[in-house]
Amino acid sequence: WEITFERNGKRITVRTTDHRLLELFEKLWRNGADERELERLAEEINR
């Protein structure tokens, strides 16, 4: 799966075969987690 999240013109794409990681990322994104931390998390998930 691949999903791109966008907020205030900032886009972060997450790619993984584990839908649970996408759900976790989406919850953090929707709850306003720090964008720098989300970028780092996305990099780890995308590996």
Score class of each variant (00 low, 15 high):
Trp1Gly: 08
Leu38Pro: 00
Glu35Gln: 10
Glu39Arg: 06
Arg40His: 12
Arg47Tyr: 05
Glu23Leu: 11
Ala42Gly: 03
Leu28Glu: 13
Gly32Leu: 08
Phe25Ile: 06
Lys27Ile: 14
Ala42Phe: 08
Arg30Pro: 05
Arg7His: 09
Ala33Lys: 03
Arg15Glu: 02
Arg36Asn: 15
Arg11Ala: 13
Glu35Ile: 15
Trp1Met: 10
Trp29Thr: 05
Arg7Ala: 13
Ile12Arg: 01
Glu43Val: 08
Asn31Met: 08
Gly9Trp: 00
Glu2Leu: 03
Phe25Arg: 00
Leu38Asn: 00
Leu41Asn: 01
Trp29Met: 13
Trp29Pro: 03
Phe5Gly: 00
Val14Met: 04
Arg15Thr: 11
Ile12Asn: 00
His19Pro: 13
Leu28His: 12
Phe25Val: 02
Arg36Ala: 15
Leu38Ala: 01
Trp29Ile: 15
Glu2Val: 05
Thr16Pro: 02
Leu28Ser: 08
Ala33Asp: 04
Phe25Ser: 00
Leu21Tyr: 08
Asn31Gln: 13
Thr17Lys: 12
Arg47Trp: 05
Glu6Gln: 05
Glu26Leu: 13
Trp1Ile: 12
Lys27Phe: 14
Trp1Gln: 06
Thr16Lys: 01
Arg11Trp: 09
Leu24Thr: 09
Glu39Thr: 10
Leu28Gly: 02
Ala33Trp: 10
Glu35Gly: 07
Leu24Tyr: 14
Lys10Arg: 12
Glu43Leu: 09
Glu23Met: 09
Arg7Tyr: 11
Arg36Phe: 14
Glu37Cys: 13
Ala42Val: 09
Glu2Phe: 05
Leu21Cys: 07
Leu24Val: 09
His19Glu: 11
Phe25Tyr: 02
Asn8Ala: 07
Ala42Gln: 03
Leu28Asn: 07
Glu35Asp: 15
Arg40Glu: 10
Arg7Ile: 15
Arg20Pro: 05
Gly32Lys: 06
Glu44Met: 14
Ile45His: 03
Arg20Asn: 13
Arg47Leu: 11
Glu37Asp: 14
Leu22His: 02
Trp1Thr: 06
Leu22Ile: 13
Glu6Tyr: 06
Glu2Asn: 01
Arg40Thr: 11
Thr17Ala: 10
Glu6Cys: 11
Glu44Pro: 01
Leu38His: 01
Lys10Gln: 11
Arg20Leu: 12
Arg20Val: 11
Arg11Ile: 11
Phe5His: 02
Thr17Met: 09
Asp34His: 08
Leu41Ala: 06
Leu22Tyr: 06
Ile12Asp: 00
Leu28Pro: 00
Glu43Ile: 09
Asp34Pro: 10
Leu21Gly: 01
Glu44Ser: 12
Ile12Phe: 08
Trp1Arg: 06
Ile3Tyr: 10
Glu44Phe: 13
Ile3Lys: 14
Arg47Phe: 07
Asp18Arg: 02
Asn46Glu: 07
Glu2Pro: 01
Glu43His: 10
Glu6Pro: 02
Glu6Asp: 05
Lys27Asp: 15
Trp29Ala: 09
Arg36Val: 15
Thr4Tyr: 05
Glu39Pro: 01
Glu26Pro: 00
Arg15Ala: 07
Glu26His: 05
Arg15Asn: 08
Trp29Val: 12
Thr4Glu: 09
Arg47Met: 13
Val14Phe: 03
Val14Trp: 00
Glu23Ile: 08
Glu43Ser: 09
Glu35Ser: 10
Arg20Gln: 13
Glu6Ser: 03
Ala42Leu: 12
Glu44Trp: 11
